[in-house]
């Protein structure tokens, strides 16, 4: 029988990664399409677009961090 607290913590951990990943994906899709437009219009902007694309990834990394610490709080795992 799984403890409800453990289940909720696990759910929270999953959500923190999942929601952060969705947010990153959303941000990257917007930046990506705008970036493609920019690259089509102006030469030499690939590096800028690459950097802009990479910035939202921090969100999912932070989500991972939160999940990691949350999983550590599950009784029997931490």
């Amino acid at each position: 029988m799984v403890d409800l607290t453990a289940g909720l913590i696990g759910l929270g951990a999953g959500l923190s990664v999942g929601a952060a990943a969705l947010a990153t994906a959303w941000a990257q899709s917007t930046i990506g399409s705008a970036g493609m437009g920019l690259m089509a219009e102006k030469d030499g902007t690939f590096t800028n677009v690459l950097i802009l694309m990479a910035i939202p990834e921090t969100m999912v990394i932070l989500g991972f961090l939160v999940a990691f610490f949350l999983i550590g709080k599950i009784p029997g795992i931490g």
């Binding site: 590096t47 690459l50 950097i51 990479a54 910035i55 990834e57």
Partner: peptide, 9 residues
């Protein structure tokens, strides 16, 4: 890609 990003950003 990620290493590059850590340097550039």
């Amino acid at each position: 890609i990620q290493t590059l990003r850590l340097h550039y950003v």
